[in-house]
Simulated scan of single mutants.
Amino acid sequence: MTTLENDQLRVSIRPKGAELTSIFHKPTATEHLWQADPTVWPWHGPNLFPVVGGCLNNQLLIDGHAYPTERHGFARHTVFETTESSDAHAIFSLRADDKTRAVYPYEFLFQIIYELEGPQLTITYRVVNEDQKTVFFSVGAHPAFAVPFRADEAYEDYFIEFDQAEPLETHRLSAGGFFTGETEPVSTAGNRLPLTAHLFDQDALVFKNMRSRRVTIRTDKHEQAVTVTFPEFPYLGLWAKPGAPFVCIEPWLGCADSEGSPVPIEQKEAIQQVEPGRVFDASFTIRIQ
């Protein structure tokens, strides 16, 4: 376990999946990350790579071949090497090997960089192309934040605040987790989306290309808040297991397949790419107040 710490936050990251396991706010003695109750949902904040969401037939089509894949990719199940670590900074690295080549035939280096400054944690996803051809990929975050923040409060005391008041519509998912092509308006009060036990009864809310690039978990009862800012991520997922005391805020560069016929990886919606010898970086922040 790697720990980053200052006078505001203590952050823990485990090597498996380079996954956040704790964001502890010292001034209020509050653990803000869901603690992965295995009877409810056994993750804290998985990192999604090289796919986000599910692929039709559980396969990736690359260069005319079908490779087995699983929902959200293999990185969250893989032990990363801790290549740098200090009180304020850590880098976790995953390089292509025989196991990854069997399901994802590229030469790559995938790094997750954590940087702590005051009450803010910056997470950077870095993909280095070590191949002789273009590497196609998706990448995303899935942190689950504990709600409510205090024992004497209720889930329904909280809301998601978007940085802009805008009409929101979610892109519907099938029972298999694939986009149906249908959308549905999401009822908000101005720029607020109230949290309720049944908000996610129909699976995640998925927003594509909305104007907001910052969302905050808040209550009107006090000033404590968690803000996620994601200027480089056009897709956002919100999800919780219905009735569970957490909410996931998920910035994505990529998404699940749509129902229909599989397409080659380079034609997948929101697919990213990095050319030989090039480096791809994308960052988002988590700020506690």
Rank of each mutant, 00 (worst) to 15 (best):
I13T: 07
T122P: 09
P38K: 04
A197S: 12
F207V: 01
P167F: 04
V11N: 05
P264W: 06
H32E: 09
Y235P: 00
D63I: 03
E184D: 13
P234Y: 03
Q273F: 07
T183Q: 05
G181R: 07
A102W: 07
T39E: 12
V206R: 01
E169S: 12
K221T: 02
G260K: 03
Q59R: 14
E156V: 09
I160L: 12
Q111H: 10
P251S: 09
V139Y: 06
R192W: 02
F246R: 02
K16F: 04
R10L: 08
A88G: 14
K241L: 11
F145H: 06
E81T: 13
R192L: 09
A189C: 12
W41S: 00
S12P: 01
Y104Q: 11
E115K: 14
F162W: 09
Y67W: 07
E130C: 14
V79N: 14
K268F: 00
E232N: 08
R150C: 08
C55R: 15
E184T: 14
L20M: 08
W34Q: 01
V215G: 01
L9T: 02
H72G: 08
A175G: 15
Q132L: 14
E259D: 14
R14K: 15
K133E: 15
A225S: 15
F136I: 05
H89C: 06
L253G: 07
N209E: 15
P15A: 13
N58V: 00
D163L: 01
E275K: 14
R278C: 04
I286K: 10
L94Q: 12
V147E: 01
A144S: 10
V226R: 05
T229L: 02
I271Q: 12
Q132S: 15
W34L: 00
R71M: 10
L116G: 06
P245H: 02
P276E: 06
Y158L: 04
R14N: 13
K99A: 15
P194N: 06
F230P: 01
L121F: 10
F108P: 14
F92G: 10
G118A: 08
